[in-house]
């Protein structure tokens, strides 16, 4: 009966994962391996193709148009113009590339639209967290703490299937941006993605599928060692159950992959350093880029994080 409960939990989390995350690993790998035929992504590899990419995205019907709107984000910050979701939700958010602007503005604007997508992704992760049995019964302040500390780790894991050693899919898989192009951006923008590529290429060799990913993400959210938690016991209890479910899932789904569970536990530790470095880079950006505006939700998450 216990194993049956753990399997039921795995199925529940997998369904929630499919419900809340718009682009999962399976379709992503199909795009990256060129199995989507006519729907191959547009490739951005230099400034010229970056501008063409905008045309491409504007001409093409956006998927997920009917996704839930982000009323809570916009309501919380009425008039917040950079929150741009729904049908016209593209890589570059609300602005357009004129071709006339100074070169150094490109990075900044691209960064702003990445922030918009990240804020939307935080909402997706929040909905997923709420679907974890027992999560919404936790102290509300602890739910906030778990999300604050867990959400960037979750986003990095969600980003991994979008990446290969040569680049990353963006804009719901419609665009492939090369790693070399990202490296060619001016400092410190060029330093932002490289650590994620290094992590993702290694993480992808573990070959988790979407059902494994769902459990792993739930484990990342439910960590009893996040700073400032008020009531650790129930969180640890929930995490223990999800960890057991993950361990069983891996045994069944990857019988030949030795030590996969232990390797994933190690990844949980590695992620913490990546997030710390990421937050420090954002703090550096805030100081050096006078025109930069940090999204209020991301600001909340990163303030006093590490």
């Amino acid at each position: 009966p216990e194993a049956a409960d753990l399997r039921a939990l795995a199925r529940h989390l997998f369904r929630a994962y499919l419900k809340y995350f718009p682009l999962t690993k399976q379709p992503t790998r199909a795009i990256l391996s060129g199995k989507t035929g006519d729907n191959a992504p547009c490739v951005i590899h230099d400034m010229k193709s970056l501008m063409e990419g905008e045309q491409f995205i504007n001409c093409r019907q956006m998927p997920f148009q009917e996704q839930q709107q982000t009323s809570v984000l916009t309501a919380a910050h009425g008039g917040l113009t950079e929150v741009h979701m729904g049908s016209d939700y593209g890589v570059w958010g609300m602005t357009s590339i004129s071709g006339q602007e100074p070169q150094n503005a490109v990075e900044l604007r691209f960064f702003q639209s990445c922030q918009s997508r990240s804020a939307e992704a935080v909402r997706e992760v929040t909905e997923f967290a709420k679907s974890i049995p027992g999560f919404t019964d936790l102290d509300l302040n602890d739910q906030v703490t778990l999300l604050k500390y867990g959400v960037i780790e979750v986003l990095i894991i969600m980003m991994s299937p979008l990446m290969n050693k040569d680049g990353t899919l963006i804009s719901y898989g419609q665009i492939f941006m090369t790693r070399e192009f990202l490296k060619s951006l001016r400092k410190p923008f060029c330093q932002m993605m490289e650590p994620k590529f290094e992590f993702s290429v290694k993480f992808n060799t573990l070959e988790l599928d979407d059902s494994d990913m769902a459990l792993f993400l739930a484990c990342l959210i439910l960590r009893g060692d996040r700073p400032g938690l008020l009531n650790v016991k129930p969180i640890e209890k929930l995490q223990e159950t999800v960890l057991h479910s993950l361990e069983l899932q891996l045994k069944l789904n990857h019988p030949d992959s030795l030590q996969l569970f232990a390797k994933l536990l190690q990844k949980m530790t590695d992620l913490r350093q990546i997030v710390t470095d990421h937050v420090h880079l954002i703090q550096l950006l805030k100081k050096t880029e006078v025109d930069m505006c940090l999204h209020p939700l991301l600001q909340e998450i990163m303030k006093d994080l590490y």
């Binding site: 839930q68 919380a76 935080v122 909905e127 509300l140 906030v144 999300l147 909340e300 998450i301």
Partner: peptide, 20 residues
Amino acid sequence: KEKHKILHQLLQNSTSPVDL
């Protein structure tokens, strides 16, 4: 609570019943 106003709102925002 003020420090994490949006996160609180996202968590308390009642979505349609999860029909999983």
